[in-house]
Design a protein around this nucleic acid. Sequence first.
DNA 1: ATGCCTGTTCTACC
DNA 2: CGGTAGAACAGGCA
Length: 263
Amino acid sequence: MPELLEVESYRRLAERTVGRSIAEVLTPDAWFVKGIGPEEFTAAVTGAVVEAAERRGKLAWLQLDNGHRLGLRFGMTGRLVVDGTAAIDELVYGARRQDPVWDRFTLVFAAHRGADGGSLVLSDPRRLGGVELDPDLGRLGPDATVITRSELAAVLCSRLALKAVLMDQGRVAGLGNLLTDDVLWRAGLSPQRPANSLDQAEVVRLPRAIGTTLRTLGRRGGSHTGDLQPERHRDGRCPRDGAALDRTEVGGRTTYWCPVHQH
DNA sequence: ATGCCTGTTCTACC
DNA sequence: CGGTAGAACAGGCA
């Protein structure tokens, strides 16, 4: 379910594992381990202690005391379970089934003073996520929660559709399909506008809309709590002015937007 | 039943 | 080079 907001909640959950030592790695699905073989991956992280849980955009990782970063990607359906506790997103889909077959990757932590060390599990029905040793952070743009106006302006130098640029993780990290539609709805900007066609006022408006959208939807509980969300269907109407929403494909993703106030 | 979906990566192609 | 399109992953839901 993850866009930036969900991945941030996973990162916070993963912080519970800071200070623990990785005793065992379970990789029942070799395909889920990216880049190198499961054996090599396991050898690189077993015995290491988790020093921090970090995030940029939709990528989360555990910083290990042996210098490696253990990257966690969630795709569209991945979720994190630590010590048997999932992060908040039951709210989203209601009581979701939890099949152990979907546990694609597990860290078992070393017992400490006789107490169970706990575990970290990445459960992903559709296998669209994965784990990666030392993911390349250089491929990600600035995180959307901290991107500055000038960084954003620099990223808009493309004839590509505005929405496609905002969703390009190499330019801005963290915005997915739902968040981007809500950002543009708030900013009053058409998703189809060439990114380099924004005037000065619009370049000021856009980062504000990103900030407002992330704060507001974060408070409400996630990417699925956008103002546009209930209207994401044929016959959907703009919550601001009641106009019929347009449904078009932009940047390869279904896009809902208001042709009346988004220009 | 058919089609759609909060994501990414790869290939083919223009 | 910049950009587009489709496929792949696989389950739930309308």
